[in-house]
Computed example of a mutant assay.
Amino acid sequence: MSTAAPPEPSSASIPRASHAERASSFGAGAGDYRAVRPSYPDAAIDWMLPAGARHVLDLAAGTGKLTEKLVARGLHVTAVEPSDGMRAQLQDAVPGAHVLPGTAERIPLEDGSVDAVLVAQAWHWFDVATAVREIARVLRPGGRLGVVWNVRDHTVDWVEQFTEIIHRGDSLEPVHRTPSLDGVDEAFTPLVHATFPWADRLPAAGLRTLAATRSHLLTLPLAERDELLDAVDHLAATHPALAGLTEIDLPYRAECWRADRVLGTDAGMVDE
């Protein structure tokens, strides 16, 4: 059997989905997303949550990867997610959460009603100018905003190769940057950053499924998507660090930011 790598598709031949199309693409692959997307390390969650938090909003909660960790701590958790498909997976997986349809730009909660707003792997889909005002509105004075990204550790050779494959032809810029609070800076303390290395264990065959849950691949025509997924399979079958394994540890850095809602300011309120 040949071990030659599948050919790389020409980036010129790959249609570019719009930002909105990519943001709304996850519902179709929600089951796979729930099955293979990584969770978040406890140390990162500890760092983002304020002391004494009781009611926490998981904003753009997806299929509930972070939600379930929060519910397990005995917190009252409201999970807001716009995608019907993702929300259905969340409700099945985390029955202890209060799950609502909604967006970061229009959060279906009362003013000052939550102790923390956590955003996992979703900040780049927001209209930030509107979302940060809504987040400030629903946070109680002294409450906290926490933002977390799982970033693959590209110092590991096979991880770098995996990342190169799944970003071929991708027009979306890297998203794990410092979140912007422009326009409501006065409503929050300065952002603080911390990094938490960890690893997620998944079946070796799950690399293909993991790749298929990304918005870039979800919005590609079938032929181009299959070419990239076949390249992932080839990597898993032939890379010396992966070949023959049934399970692998995918190394991540949980990149986290937090900022506290300033006492006695209404700078985050949205004008009606």
Rank of each mutant, 00 (worst) to 15 (best):
M1R: 15
W125T: 05
L139V: 03
P38D: 09
A231F: 03
D249S: 10
H154K: 15
S10G: 14
V56D: 02
Y40P: 02
R54K: 15
D157Q: 14
T246K: 04
W149A: 03
D42L: 12
R208E: 11
I107T: 02
A116G: 06
P41V: 05
P41N: 10
A97N: 11
L49F: 06
E255Q: 14
D111I: 03
L250P: 02
D32G: 15
G62E: 02
A43F: 01
A23P: 00
A194Y: 04
D127R: 12
E224Q: 09
R177S: 13
R87C: 01
P141L: 05
G183I: 01
D185A: 03
Q91R: 10
K69Y: 01
L235E: 01
W257V: 07
P7H: 04
R54E: 15
L139W: 02
A93N: 08
L263K: 11
L220N: 04
T189Y: 03
S24I: 05
L250S: 06
A211P: 02
T265Q: 07
T163I: 09
D115H: 11
F196Y: 07
G52C: 08
G31P: 00
Q161K: 06
P82F: 01
V117A: 03
Q121G: 06
L109S: 05
L172I: 11
T163P: 00
L75E: 03
D182H: 13
P6H: 09
I14E: 01
A267T: 08
T189N: 10
A205T: 13
G206L: 10
P203I: 13
P179L: 00
L118P: 01
L191V: 07
G96R: 15
L57N: 00
G268N: 08
L210R: 13
G146S: 13
M86P: 02
L59R: 01
G183S: 10
G244K: 08
H76D: 11
E164F: 04
S25M: 12
D170H: 12
T238W: 11
A205Y: 06
G102I: 00
P15A: 14
D153V: 08
F26C: 04
R34I: 01
T189F: 07
D153G: 09
R54T: 15
D92F: 14
G143S: 13
L109Y: 01
A53V: 05
G74M: 10
A79W: 01
P9M: 03
S13R: 12
R214T: 10
R208N: 06
L202P: 05
P50M: 12
D233W: 03
R137P: 01
P7F: 04
L245E: 09
I14M: 13
A93R: 07
L66R: 04
F26K: 08
M86L: 15
H55Q: 05
A60S: 10
S13I: 04
D58H: 08
E160R: 10
A212F: 03
T189I: 08
H76I: 10
M1T: 13
S113T: 12
G64R: 05
T195H: 09
A199T: 14
V262Q: 13
L217E: 03
P50Q: 14
P108F: 02
L172G: 06
P197M: 03
D111M: 10
